[in-house]
Each structure stands twice: as structure tokens, then as C-alpha cells.
Design a protein around this nucleic acid. Sequence first.
DNA 1: TTGTGTTTTATTGCCTCC
DNA 2: GGAGGCAATAAAACACAA
Length: 327
Amino acid sequence: MAGSGRVYNSSGGASSSLSVLLQNQRGSEPLDSLFLSGSSNASSTSPFLGSTSMVSFEDVRRGNGLKRSMFHQYEHEENCDDDLDDYFHQPGKKRRLTADQVQFLEKSFDLENKLEPERKILLAKDLGLQPRQVAIWFQNRRARWKTKQLEKDYDVLQANYTSLKADCDSLSKVNDKLKAEVLELSDRLRLRDKERANSEQSDTNKLSQEPQQMPNSESVSEGEVSKLSVVACKEDLGSVKSDIFDSDSPHYTDGVHSSLLEPGDSSYVFEPDQSDLSQDEEDNLSKSLLPPYIFPKLEDVDYSDPPANSCNFGFPVEDQAFWSWSY
DNA sequence: TTGTGTTTTATTGCCTCC
DNA sequence: GGAGGCAATAAAACACAA
């Protein structure tokens, strides 16, 4: 029986014979008989020669009087490649590998997709192929593997992109909603500014017209005015503090921050009518709570010159010490 | 049967490594 | 400089619908 040489086993070594392996797979059928079965179309039934091999194994045997299998032929001489070249190298013709050959090559490829020279020779001998054919098969197989790998990577990337895009769209909607809210609040602030300015103007006019009616008005120092303003301001801020700025208050998280985080919530929108914030407090609230990227138009509002009775008393609006007051 | 698209085998040219 | 790998490509083999 031919094919008594070494062969790769499943662990990649050269410890078992491919012919023995195939005999086991085919019920101990001798390989020679497989090559010879069907004399009219021997090549089509050969386990290791393609159905359209340019030279059938029977042709090989008839032409050279060989009584040995391809494996045996390989075992006998080192320069057998030259003879095989004579048989197989016919320009313009290609032979397809048999299913068995491909299966064996696939298994070998699964073990190691690179082909070291020794393994190439052994595989070539065991499969009855030229070493170059084995090398070419591995090369093409690596190319196919790479293509598939790229397709897999592409699928993964596309899935990630789809997921990220959904997140982005969702965040974009939230952002748009917040922007609209900021614009609305800005408009309200502007309106309140005007109303207060008008009110102050009328108060000033009243005072200038009836100075004698103010009891002890001359004795009120600037400091006392400031104190009065602070009291008024504290009263103004009282509700604001408890509703918004007291971080211990549940309203802080439930009413403001959580609403920013949960735009779908019914409490999401600010209630402008219940706001008792003074101008500066609202300014600072706007500037400190709202990130710049959703508050692009604040520069359009003139906050640099707050009303005289505002509670910052000349402190810069940005002065965070303003918020450190104890109420 | 034939035209056409796909798969497989093989070649070529370039590049890298030893 | 030779060997081997890879990308691009050619071409044979194959599958399949019309």
C-alpha cells in the first residue's frame, strides 16, 4: 500500500499517515483502488486529484508504467517535483483540489495559518500536490480569511456606529429642548428687567416729589439702606433658596437638576411665575447652572449693569462668594 | 445550451527580513 | 541577494438562471 510516509495528525505533527487516515475514513479502502476505480474517468473518482485534473492519475500510470501511488512516488525521490511538473504543469490549465484535499488543507490551516517549509513539503507529499500548490493554497486561504475577518470587523463597527448614533440623536433632542428652554427663560429675564426698571423709575420720581413724607429719611445711612436691601433680598431669595439652591432640599434634585436629566418628566419645565429670584440671582443661576454650549445667547442680554436694588451690592456677578451668604 | 456571476487556482510585482 | 508574504489580477472551473 502506498502512502506509508509521515503525515500531519490533528495536532500538527507528522506522526500519522494521511493514507492510513483516509483508509480509516473510507473503511480501509486502499488508496490505489480509489485512484483506479472507474477506468473511464479515473480522475473524477480520485480522492486527491480534481475532477478536472489536467492529467488523470491513470494517465500518469499508463504513460510511465508506474505501479505506485502519488504518495509512493513522492517518497522515493527528492527531485520528484520535476517529474510532477512534467505531469501537472500545463500552461493554461488549472486543476481543482478534491474535497478531501481541501478538507485536509483546511484542518491544517486551522492549526496554523502560516506554512513553514517543512510542513509545506510534508503536506505536498501527503496530498500528492506540488509544494508550490500547497503554498499557493495557503496564501489564497489567508487572503480569504483576511477578507472574512474584515467583514466581521465591519459588522462590529457598524453595530457600534448604529448604537452610538442612536445615543447621539437622543442627546441631540434633549439638547434642543434645553436650548429652547434657555431661550424662553432668557426672554422672561429680559422682560422682568424692563418691568423692574420702570418700577424703580416711578419710585424714584415719587421720592423726589415727596421727600418730607419719609420719616427720618435723612437719618438713614447708606449702610442702613444696604441692610434693608439685604433683608428684602433675603426675603426674595427665601423661596428660591428652599426651592432651588439648597442642595439639601429635595427640590434641588427633584425640581431642577433631575428635570435637566429627565426631560420627559412632567416637572421638567421651569415654572417662571413661581420664581422669586432677583435679577442677579437669576443671572447667576443661569450662568452657573447652564453649560455654555446650551446657553449661547446670554451675551445678548445686558447683565453688566444690574438694577440698583439688586442683591449683589456691587459685587461682581461672577463672584461666587455671593452665594456663600448664610440665609 | 448559453450567458453571467462567483469561486478557486495561479501569476506577477513589490516589499520585508535575514 | 534570496526566500517568503501579500495585494492585485488573470483565468479556469463552477453554479445557475433563462
